[in-house]
Design a protein around this nucleic acid. Structure first.
Length: 436
RNA sequence: GGAGGCGUGGAUGAGUGGUUUAAAUCAACGGUUUACUAAACCGUCGAACUUUAAUCGGUUCCGUGAGUUCGAAUCUCACCGCCUCCGCCA
């Protein structure tokens, strides 16, 4: 949600931003409604004020006749008050519905474009491996090695589920452990920031969190992540839904909380399973584990001061790159264009990792800078040193999406005989050289 | 699942229909004193919306929502959360 005062004062910028995000909220209608809101609110408050004054007089009046006459008079005021209050409520619910529909406005450095074809690669890293054989896709490798079974999962659950087995499971836990060790290591983090040329003054390390995988729909609305019911697994009997990312229950951890300036930044590393219905992607990426209803992911969530938040996003991207570099996986960093970015995002950067089996870069990481957009809805604020209170800025970003990163490892590290070499850095967690 | 209890500002906690405009204490912040720290003393000290150049002011908020009333932190109902006991359980 944006600040209504900001919308009032920057009408044209907002309109432009909304158009770039391919949204169609009528800002003029909203502003007209807002004027009505203020007028009715003023009248309601005046009536309430009259009532409050009279209440004291009634309380102090000893004469029973005068007193009952006063009460009768106030009955009339009460009637008008109720009427105005109802009117205000109707306006407010319409007003709020409109406010929630306005997407976040892209930053000036966000490329303008219609869809993912206009995203811009801002840098790349690493060498694509050379094979003297035709590299296979992960699902072929996985099936042959007996470490991915989508057929049984299809029968037991449904499509887009899988049994991960054997060494692939060891690989997943190794990756989690490797990443957590980076995120809780202050020196390592400082090192990453320095190498990326970032002046992150105080590096608070990440606090590991295992968050709930269920969330109230109401909270999900505040996170600006509940756009359409068909996108989510809903449990109406319990008024709950499954999260699509640890972001949803990490970002909402501090609803209605005011931080002191000195407490920030606060950084979390949340590990959870993510659940996606994948409505509308029928027929897309149906093989293997690239696009699943259920996958595990380590996610970063950072609450920071507004003036540091862009830098903070750059830091998160630097961490993502560090993880991929450690695994020696080739990738490109992509600045996501206005038409392709998420609803609450002001700036989105994705990382696509090389998948030789598919002969393509595929998205493995995403980082969302949402500024004060989510925090304004959530009521997560900061009290500045001068006493001013404002929404904190929020960033969320993937550390590692296990499924997709394991695909990249399988395909990049595959051997002619169909076995998979274990990356050097993971050997201390998995006591072998090959998955075979 | 059964029984009971409780939700008041950053924390503790008073308040059971009208001088409550939410007491008091602690914490926090500013100052005086001090070589420094502490103590003591003085002062400030919730949030949202609105008005204003800014102050002043106005309205709302006592878990959330609805209701009763001229008037609700206080009464009624529903919901949410927490705690205790019993049952079940990784």
């Amino acid at each position: 949600m944006l600040d209504i005062k900001f919308i009032r004062e920057n009408k044209d910028i907002i309109k432009e931003g909304i158009a770039k995000k391919k949204s169609t909220v009528d800002i003029d209608a909203l502003l007209e409604l807002d004027e009505k809101r203020l007028a009715v609110m003023a009248r309601t408050e005046t009536l309430r004020g009259e009532q409050n004054k009279m209440n004291t007089s009634i309380a102090n009046e000893k004469d029973v006749n005068i007193r009952s006459q006063m009460i009768n008079e106030m009955k009339l005021v009460k009637d008008e008050f109720k009427e105005k209050e109802q009117e205000l409520q109707d306006i407010l619910s319409e007003w709020q519905a409109l406010m929630l529909k306005i997407p976040n406005i892209p930053t000036v450095d966000t490329p303008i474009g219609e869809d993912d074809s206009e995203n811009i690669v801002i840098r790349d890293w690493g060498e694509k491996p050379n094979f003297d054989f035709v590299p296979k896709e992960h699902f072929e490798l996985g099936k042959a090695l007996g470490i991915i079974d989508t057929e049984t999962a299809g029968e037991v659950a449904s499509s887009r589920f899988a049994y991960l087995k054997g060494d692939l499971v060891l690989l997943q836990f190794a990756l989690i452990q490797m990443c957590l060790e980076i995120l809780i290591n202050k020196e390592k983090l400082e090192d990453i920031a320095t190498k990326a040329g970032l002046s992150i003054s105080v590096v608070n390390e990440f606090i590991p969190v295992i968050p709930p995988v269920f969330v109230r729909p109401l909270v999900q609305v505040k996170m600006a992540r509940y756009m359409a019911p068909e996108d989510h697994y809903l449990f109406p009997n319990d008024d709950l839904m499954l999260i699509g990312s640890a972001e949803h229950t990490l970002g909402s951890m501090h609803m209605n909380k005011i931080f002191e300036e000195s407490e920030l930044p606060i950084r979390y590393a949340g590990y959870s399973t993510a659940f996606r219905r994948e409505a509308g992607t029928a027929g897309k990426d149906t093989n293997g584990i690239l696009r699943q209803h259920q996958f595990d992911k380590l996610e970063m969530e950072v609450f920071s001061l507004p003036e540091n938040s862009i830098q903070e996003q750059n830091f998160l991207v630097a961490i993502q790159e560090h993880v991929l570099q450690t695994l020696k996986l080739s990738y490109q960093v992509v600045s996501v264009c206005t038409g392709d970015m998420g609803f609450p995002d002001a700036r989105q950067i994705d990382i696509n990792t090389w998948m030789p089996g598919q002969n393509k870069f595929r998205e493995t990481h995403s980082s969302d800078f949402t500024g004060g957009f989510q925090s304004r809805r959530l009521g997560t604020r900061v009290r500045r040193k001068d006493g001013r209170i404002e929404p904190v800025h929020m960033n969320d970003a993937t550390v590692i999406a296990l499924g997709r990163t394991m695909i990249a490892i399988m395909e990049n590290y595959q051997q002619a005989d169909g076995t998979i070499k274990i990356p050097e850095v993971l050997k201390k967690y998995i006591n072998k050289d090959f998955i075979s």
